[in-house]
């Protein structure tokens, strides 16, 4: 089976035909440039790939739908960030509702294999991030993974810059506490190595 990247001009996807001809290349370019990035953002917020892709697909569908009101790459990217964050929130809200009715283990989490690939230290960080309140997690992901500045993070989250600042401050403090708590005490290790050296 032949695999075709969306930017391959030889066989334009149906979306390029449905959208107005003048807008199609821009929308396709946005899709090519931002699909994976948005999926990764969503994965960092909702934990599983399938849900993340659904959220991002919905965001891109909205982008197509509202393209005549955006017509600008910067605005489109801002729209995507916010739509993805909103979509993840809605998903988590539904998931929380569902939690009352289905077993807690039904909530998707990164697989053991996935986490094993990351190493213990990174896994500790990710588990600590996952344990943060929803808004704090969003702020950290947008700031330290999407590398949005404070204004961009505020825009994506729909809060003030001050809130972003204080949310990140609180989140980092919690994270630091958590990580310190999970860190093994080095005293014994140091003792052993010192003794070993003396031998």
């Amino acid at each position: 089976m032949s695999v075709m990247a969306p930017e391959d001009e030889a066989d334009p996807p149906p979306s390029a035909i449905r959208a107005p001809q003048s807008d199609a290349p821009q929308l396709d370019a946005l899709f090519s440039a931002h699909w994976l990035r948005m999926v990764r953002l969503a994965v960092l917020l909702v934990d599983d790939r399938g849900t993340a892709e659904d959220v991002v697909q919905d965001a891109f569908a909205g982008l197509h739908h509202h393209w005549n009101r955006l017509q600008d790459a910067d605005r489109a990217v801002a729209y995507l960030h916010r739509a993805v964050v909103n979509g993840c929130r809605s998903t988590l809200r539904r998931r929380r509702t569902a939690r009352a009715w289905v077993a807690p283990h039904a909530v998707p989490t990164p697989s053991a294999e996935e986490l094993a690939l990351l190493g213990e230290e990174r896994r500790d960080v990710l588990l600590a991030v996952a344990a943060l309140p929803e808004r704090q997690r969003e702020a950290l992901v947008l700031r330290y993974w999407s590398h949005l500045d404070e204004a961009g993070t505020a825009l994506a989250m729909g809060v003030t810059r001050g809130t972003v600042k204080s949310t990140i401050h609180k989140a980092l403090a919690t994270l630091e506490r958590q990580l310190r708590a999970t860190q093994p005490t080095d005293d014994h290790t140091d003792d052993r190595s010192t003794k070993g050296g003396q031998r």
Binding site: P6, Q57, H65
Partner: peptide
């Protein structure tokens, strides 16, 4: 963590089509 997610070209194309339909 993010880099664990890679593009699957086949699925990507399907998603692209679905987006156009949904729009």
């Amino acid at each position: 963590r993010a880099n664990l997610e890679q593009a699957d070209d086949h699925l990507l194309r399907r998603r692209h089509e679905e987006i156009a339909t949904a729009a």
